[in-house]
Amino acid sequence: MTLILGMLLDAMMGEPRWLWSRIPHPAVLMGQLIGWCDQTFNRGNRQLNGTLVILGLCLGAGLLGWLLQQFPGTIIDILILAVLLAQKSLVQHVQAVGDALRLSLGDGKRAVAMIVGRDTRDMDKAAVARSAIESAAENLSDGVIAPAFWFAVAGLPGLLIYKITNTADSMIGYRTERHEDFGWASARLDDLLNLVPARLTAALIWAVTTRPHPRKILREAPLHRSPNAGWPEAAMAHGLGIALSGPRSYEGEVKDYPFVNAEGEHTLGPDHIDETVEVLWKAWGAGLVLSVIILTV
């Protein structure tokens, strides 16, 4: 019941600006801690130091979660879960790209730059829409399904361990000269923790869209550059009949990635983003129903 109430509270409240403009969001605090670790320990034997850092962070997160669970009642669990889920905020950020793109290409670029890390300067309308839809699919897994899954499996300790790992991966898990060794353990642990949730997310997307033959998703998802992101992305691409991924630029360097569902629609726009937002809510609803079923069996 705690999981269900936490999901509902997040869907209703999202991330109220009046609150997080006054106190730091827990994800911000996690980011600050990881940034300090990066500045302090990213030297010497970087891979060993990075491994010890993520192990220490996970141990601390798990211990904090255990301590919080010792308080009587479930209200703290519900509030923390709602804060660390991101369904409503994800929907708002993705929809903002579609609304901005209807105004102008420039507005669309500025909006999508808030949720993706790739270069946006030379994007056309289709590239902006494609970027927003890819981000929606991947973050449905990372920001909603995976945290809910690990809370269901291991309570607050599982939730906090997942969130600190996922935050670390997003900050130091890149294959850059500075972080390839130091962030190696964080990236590998994040891959492991998302193994089941990413595939569960793909199944939920498949269940609420046009239900393409699962063989198409099973064939393309493992070919993605990420061992996990390819699953919700392939499900979204085939579910909406559109092409995702493809070439893009990072820090001025063009990456010639293949398209997912290359035979799908390539000329994307705001209407496709609207369809994606509908899928986000339907998949969330399917996840909620699944949680109810599991809890009542």
Rank of each mutant, 00 (worst) to 15 (best):
residue 193 L to P: 07
residue 186 S to K: 06
residue 40 T to G: 00
residue 142 D to F: 00
residue 239 G to M: 07
residue 40 T to V: 12
residue 231 W to R: 03
residue 216 K to Q: 13
residue 163 K to G: 02
residue 55 L to M: 14
residue 239 G to W: 05
residue 244 L to H: 07
residue 13 M to W: 15
residue 126 A to E: 09
residue 166 N to G: 02
residue 75 I to F: 10
residue 92 Q to H: 13
residue 34 I to W: 01
residue 187 A to E: 04
residue 145 I to C: 00
residue 102 R to L: 11
residue 10 D to P: 05
residue 268 L to W: 03
residue 194 N to K: 12
residue 196 V to K: 07
residue 55 L to D: 06
residue 29 L to G: 12
residue 223 L to F: 07
residue 275 E to L: 09
residue 287 G to T: 10
residue 10 D to M: 05
residue 264 G to D: 08
residue 205 I to A: 00
residue 190 D to S: 09
residue 38 D to L: 14
residue 149 F to L: 06
residue 173 G to D: 12
residue 43 R to W: 03
residue 159 L to K: 11
residue 91 V to Q: 05
residue 291 S to K: 01
residue 50 G to E: 03
residue 258 P to S: 07
residue 295 L to S: 09
residue 94 V to N: 00
residue 119 D to F: 04
residue 109 K to H: 00
residue 7 M to W: 08
residue 147 P to N: 09
residue 139 N to Y: 01
residue 55 L to P: 01
residue 117 G to Y: 05
residue 61 A to V: 13
residue 47 Q to W: 10
residue 127 A to I: 07
residue 107 D to R: 13
residue 140 L to C: 02
residue 156 L to R: 02
residue 261 N to R: 01
residue 40 T to N: 02
residue 17 R to C: 03
residue 106 G to K: 04
residue 159 L to N: 10
residue 88 K to W: 07
residue 77 D to H: 13
residue 32 Q to R: 15
residue 199 R to T: 14
residue 162 Y to R: 09
residue 89 S to D: 12
residue 71 F to C: 06
residue 70 Q to F: 04
residue 138 E to Y: 03
residue 255 K to F: 06
residue 273 I to V: 11
residue 222 P to R: 03
residue 174 Y to P: 02
residue 6 G to S: 09
residue 266 H to R: 12
residue 240 L to H: 04
residue 218 L to C: 01
residue 31 G to T: 09
residue 44 G to K: 04
residue 189 L to R: 08
residue 224 H to A: 02
residue 47 Q to I: 13
residue 22 R to W: 04
residue 23 I to L: 06
residue 121 R to T: 13
residue 146 A to C: 11
residue 205 I to E: 01
residue 264 G to S: 10
residue 202 A to G: 05
residue 138 E to N: 01
residue 15 E to H: 08
residue 6 G to P: 00
residue 167 T to R: 11
residue 151 F to C: 06
residue 200 L to A: 06
residue 196 V to A: 07
residue 62 G to Y: 06
residue 223 L to A: 09
residue 280 L to E: 04
residue 49 N to F: 07
residue 240 L to W: 11
residue 55 L to Y: 12
residue 143 G to H: 12
residue 67 L to C: 08
residue 76 I to A: 01
residue 56 G to Q: 10
residue 204 L to K: 05
residue 139 N to P: 03
residue 36 W to M: 14
residue 193 L to G: 05
residue 89 S to R: 12
residue 182 F to I: 12
residue 161 I to P: 05
residue 194 N to Y: 08
residue 5 L to F: 15
residue 186 S to Y: 02
residue 181 D to W: 04
residue 96 A to N: 03
residue 276 T to C: 09
residue 34 I to C: 03
residue 65 G to M: 02
residue 100 A to F: 08
residue 70 Q to L: 10
residue 40 T to D: 01
residue 245 S to F: 01
residue 165 T to H: 10
residue 218 L to Q: 00
residue 49 N to T: 13
residue 206 W to T: 00
residue 133 I to K: 01
residue 74 T to L: 01
residue 14 G to V: 05
residue 19 L to W: 06
residue 237 A to G: 08
residue 213 H to L: 09
residue 282 K to Q: 10
residue 262 A to W: 14
residue 213 H to K: 10
residue 295 L to M: 13
residue 271 D to M: 13
residue 131 S to C: 07
residue 30 M to V: 15
residue 16 P to E: 13
residue 240 L to N: 06
residue 196 V to N: 02
residue 283 A to G: 08
residue 295 L to E: 12
residue 205 I to V: 14
residue 71 F to G: 04
residue 225 R to K: 15
residue 272 H to W: 11
